[in-house]
Write a protein that binds this DNA or RNA. Structure first.
Lengths: 263, 263
DNA sequence: CAGTGGTCTAGACCACTCC
DNA sequence: GAGTGGTCTAGACCACTGG
């Protein structure tokens, strides 16, 4: 089943046999492998291949798209670099998923000053629905009238409350999300989002500041008011660079630090 | 001048003509392009090609190493991804340098909450030489008896003091470094290190925490004691993952934030 | 125009995984 | 052994830069 074969335009070369191309005008130039990358991404986004599943082999994709294996390979190379897929030699190429050790620490950068990460635990403080506040609506690119799911939770490590987080999610996407489901679910929250709501977080931006704990934060984290905290404001994006999460975290950095690599 | 041709071991393949290989036992397996990557990196490290200069073309390197252009290309691809070199289509491949707009913001992640980055200014508070404190020695992988250069400075944006930084550098490498040279130098500090001391920062790790301004920080940054500050502890590495800088920064995040991308 | 990096092909063989 | 990703080659042509 190769369904509809889109119009690939080869503005590259062709050693011998010409590559596929229904051709015509090509208003926008881009390498073949980029076009193929887009096609594969669309299949990922549409759920044709689900997180954790294997995508077709390079040879098969090459046949389907009527290009050489090397060209497919280069497309997948980039998808792999963007963490959309994971290659496993001898096995195949798999759709990336948040249900993995690997992917966990891509989004949780707070690590203990010494020792290994340890016994995380979540306590859901509050889950409710409300109309998107102006700033949230702007960030999530929705209307102010639209509903959003608001979540407040405290994350502990080894029993010590360490992170106080507030999340805003588009209500349209996260319809059946309740405190119960959040509590019942084992594993990372993004795993829940991915399997239960079909929304995979691809990348995120964070803005970090230092501020003093207010009364509520102090109470929930079990610290003195005024204690310095790391404020981490995250906007997460899914396919197509669509923002689907706003998250404000307050990190207690007495025994932990936010780890970052500059390269 | 191809000087000494090292022993390349091809554990890959060879469609027709065999690639170079004095061969023999190969205790450690690695792809040809990785071996070539190492060779190129050594040339970069040794200063055979200096920052900003063009390295030999892919075709020439392929000839020198007796491999195909595609293999050299893959090696350079990775070096480019690691920001060791910069490719410019039609021109050539150049040794990366800190004297560029491009490279500036790789290591300065503090950006204004709104508007563009603006009029940075440095004030050197202190430069002195001392024996490496235990922790500094450990971090920089030198002996406690060894001398280190200590620098304290304040960075302002649009006239507002924003960053208070303390740096420790191995005295052996930064011999003639004085407050004068730091003050006289136009452009990024890492540019100075690169051209004057032959030490290029390749990558760095940062540990971020929140803390309260002490009396000294408050005075130098013109804020009230107790104001929350971002503490950014950076260790920078040069070729061979050798640590060559320890830097502790206190960032005022009233009008700025530390920006990070999770991908 | 020549020279550079960038794309693409076709085919071969290697390394790894699983049956 | 069959199937997968990973490496390598040889050669062609494109896109871009600069003289």
């Amino acid at each position: 089943m190769s369904s509809v074969l889109p119009n690939l335009v080869n503005n590259g070369t062709s050693a011998a046999g010409g590559a596929a191309s229904v051709a015509g005008a090509s208003p926008t130039f881009s390498p073949l492998y980029q076009q193929i990358k887009v096609l594969i991404t669309q299949s990922l986004q549409s759920g044709e291949w689900k997180p954790g599943e294997m995508i077709p082999s390079e040879v098969e994709l090459a046949g389907r798209f009527k290009v050489s294996q090397g060209t497919v390979r280069k497309a997948i190379d980039e998808l792999s670099a963007e963490n959309l897929v994971v290659r496993r030699q001898g096995k195949g190429t798999f759709v990336a998923t948040h249900h993995e050790e690997r992917a966990q620490f891509r989004f949780l950068r707070l690590v203990p000053d010494e020792g290994e990460p340890h016994n995380p635990a979540n306590k859901i403080i509050e889950v409710k629905r409300l109309r998107a506040p102006a700033e949230v609506a702007r960030t999530l690119d929705i209307k102010s009238a639209d509903s959003v799911v608001f979540i407040k939770r405290v994350q502990s490590f080894d029993g010590a409350p360490t992170i106080l987080e507030e999340l805003w999610l588009p209500g349209a996407i996260f319809k059946g999300l309740t405190a119960e489901r959040l509590n019942d679910y084992k594993g990372p929250m993004y795993g829940l989002f991915e399997t239960e709501f079909g929304t995979r977080m691809i990348r995120a931006t964070e803005a970090i500041r230092a501020l003093s704990a207010d009364a509520e934060a102090a109470q929930l984290l079990g610290i003195a008011p005024g204690t310095p905290l790391l404020s981490v404001e995250r906007v997460s994006f899914t396919y197509g660079d669509k923002p689907v999460e706003l998250r404000r975290g307050l990190y207690l950095t007495a025994q932990h630090h936010y780890q970052n690599e500059l390269s």
